Simulated scan of single mutants.
Amino acid sequence: MKRILAAGLVLAGLTAPLAAQEVKELNFGIISTESSAGLAKSFEPMLKDLEKAVGVPVKAFFAQDYAGVIEGMRFKKVDLAWYGNKSAMEAVDRAGGEIFVQTTKPDGTKGYYSLIITNADNNAVNNLKDVVDCSKGLTFGNGDPNSTSGNLVPSYYVFALNKVDPNKCYKRVVVSNHEGNALAVANKQVDIATNNTESMDRLKDVRPAEAAKLKEVWRSPLIPSDPLVWRTDLPADMKAKIYTFFLTYGRLGSDEEVARQRAILAKTSDGWGTFVPSSNAQLYPIRQLELFKTRLKVEASDKLSADEKAKQLKEIDAKLAALDEQMKKVPSM
């Protein structure tokens, strides 16, 4: 563990001194997968331990949607944050963010699945074919535009590949977070909605009656586990403290302390295990998926001239080829 930590600090450039203004407080951004009250209760114990480790107050930062946390990092109101992969990509590209660790499950697995769910009583929707049948007049709960599992993944695998535009296919489309969509389906306010296995696990824990009213009708390929992202301009000494905290949390210390920390992690979000090192390379598959989705959209467009379509497709293919070369040199985490 010590060798891994030391190597990670060197790779992250955290062992060299860096003159910077003193950090007096850290704001930890938390994406809005459910109510802020539920998330605050879930994250508070871990953030209290982080506060002790880094020596400055650590405050949770909430926003109405994922974009609010991304913008918070962009304007330096958020110092580090828990994101999904899609929102992490936006934070890296637009808000000066950098992935430094990745979450895992208590059993050590590093991934989860996007879902389409419906009410257990809904006999008209049982599989993907039913989901994309526009003659059914369904109502649809979509996820936050910056959500990986609630928006990006289903927008490609469910809709783009089947040449379906949700806004044209469904009688009504609403947008909410994972918890909001699950409750809307359970209460029969919408017929189908996006979600993911992590949020379903948490719903079974906090609202088992509503969870029992849901059934899964589609599941995606495996999605990489969520990353933690910090601002690249944080002082190196603070980054070193943060990095050390997350990589040793639930790993080092007395048996009692390790057990206490792992119990805290198991109740954080949908239930986490220990953290593992990561980097922006984790986003390669997500970038690839975004480009594939865009390519299908351009290819199917009837608003572009043949020349313009060919030009855009050539540009997208060049980006995909460059990304493929990059992935060969630096494998995704």
Rank of each mutant, 00 (worst) to 15 (best):
S135W: 01
N162A: 12
K110S: 10
L138V: 08
V174C: 04
K86C: 02
S87C: 12
D107V: 15
I116S: 01
G141T: 07
L115M: 08
D130R: 01
M46H: 01
V164S: 07
A53F: 09
V78G: 05
R94P: 00
N162T: 11
T118L: 10
S87R: 09
V153N: 03
E98W: 03
N151Y: 12
T139H: 06
Y156R: 03
A160M: 08
D107T: 15
V92W: 04
L128Q: 04
K110A: 09
K110D: 01
N126V: 03
I99P: 01
R172F: 02
D130H: 04
V132F: 05
G96V: 09
S149F: 05
G96D: 07
K59I: 03
A60S: 14
A91K: 04
D165C: 07
I70H: 02
G72W: 01
D144M: 07
A67P: 00
T118V: 15
F100G: 01
T103K: 07
P166R: 09
D133P: 01
L47V: 10
T148W: 00
G143N: 09
E98F: 02
K48A: 13
V132T: 13
D121Q: 14
V78M: 12
Y170V: 11
L80A: 06
M46D: 01
K105G: 03
F75K: 11
M89Q: 12
L152V: 08
T103E: 15
E71T: 12
V158F: 08
Y156G: 03
A63H: 06
Y66A: 14
G137R: 14
G96E: 04
Y112H: 14
M89I: 02
V78R: 10
L80W: 07
R74M: 10
L152P: 01
T139C: 12
K168G: 11
C169A: 07
V54I: 11
L152D: 02
M46A: 11
P166H: 09
L138W: 03
K129R: 13
A81V: 04
T109C: 05
V58T: 05
Y156C: 01
T109V: 13
V158T: 10
E90T: 10
L161K: 15
E71L: 15
G143F: 04
L152Y: 03
